[in-house]
């Protein structure tokens, strides 16, 4: 589904990703972990198409297509979803009209008729239940006055509505209490299927207690320095990132 080869990315001349490689297949859940400032969020932004970065080298293919040929909104309509670390507020725009616009843009792109108001409301009710979001949140403006936890839940709710092929969750667990964390994890698990894939970007392993990843990668200095299964996350938890850093430095020295 997603293939990233030798990707190097910089911002204002400062290299952030440097020779990054990743293969994600349908049905898989990948966790990307790493200390702060190693390029985790940059990776998410580059895949989603934020244009504040310079891609210096490498390629990304998404379902056989060159991702860099696709505008950000096209990537979204083709099924790439980014759950934002800091979801932004859009005052005065109701969640319902925002999401209905999004869904209908996607449907138009896929050559489908726009969804009627009644159909949309039904879908919204259905997905609300799925991700256990309170109905009052969807009556409000996009993220306006939402608490940190509500914003994150709202990201999962949007993901449920858009049914992405590839979901990237950028630090969705940060700032969540354990109950909110469970709600988020529950939503992600329910949406998991053999057809879609998820990339979870996180600093801590606690989210991975609830969403079991197929692969865990450790990002350090702009590239993946270690990959493994769920147990790697636990090992990181106990040994800390220093351990990986040391290994990475030793590897670099050889």
């Amino acid at each position: 589904m997603l293939s990233i080869k030798d990707l190097s990315v910089s911002i204002n001349g400062k290299t952030i990703l440097d020779g990054f490689n990743l293969e994600v297949k349908a049905g898989e859940v990948h966790a990307i972990m790493g200390p702060n400032g190693t390029g985790k969020s940059t990776l998410a932004s580059v895949i989603a198409g934020r244009d504040m970065f310079d891609v210096d080298r490498g390629e990304i293919t998404y379902r056989g297509q060159n991702l860099f040929d696709m505008a950000p909104e096209i990537r979204a309509r083709e099924g790439i979803f980014l759950g934002f670390q800091y979801p932004v507020e859009i005052p005065g725009v109701s969640m319902a009209s925002f999401m209905r616009t999004a869904i209908n843009e996607k449907r138009k792109h896929l050559g489908l008729e726009p969804m009627s108001g009644a159909e949309f409301l039904k879908l919204m009710e259905e997905k609300k239940k799925l991700v256990e979001i309170q109905s009052k949140l969807t009556n409000r403006s996009v993220n306006e006055g939402f608490s940190g936890g509500e914003k994150k839940k709202n990201e999962i709710f949007q993901m449920a509505l858009l049914e992405p092929r590839l979901a990237i969750l950028d630090e969705t667990d940060s700032g969540l209490d354990i109950d909110a964390l469970k709600v988020v994890a529950n939503g992600v698990n329910k949406l998991r299927s053999p057809e879609n894939a998820t990339i979870i970007i996180t600093h801590y392993q606690r989210l991975l207690d609830f969403i079991i990843p197929d692969y865990v990668h450790v990002l350090f200095d702009g590239r993946i320095v270690k990959s493994g299964d769920k147990s790697l996350a636990l090992e990181l938890e106990s040994k800390g990132y220093e351990w990986v850093k040391k290994e990475a430095n030793m590897a670099a020295a050889h």
Partner: peptide
């Protein structure tokens, strides 16, 4: 730019995004 990118990432193009944000305002 964050608001615009948020809309783009949901599949809403620049024109519609501005329309949406301005109408909200």
């Amino acid at each position: 730019e964050d608001q615009l990118f948020y809309c783009l990432q949901r599949g809403i193009d620049m024109e519609s995004a501005i329309g949406l944000i301005v109408n909200g305002y």
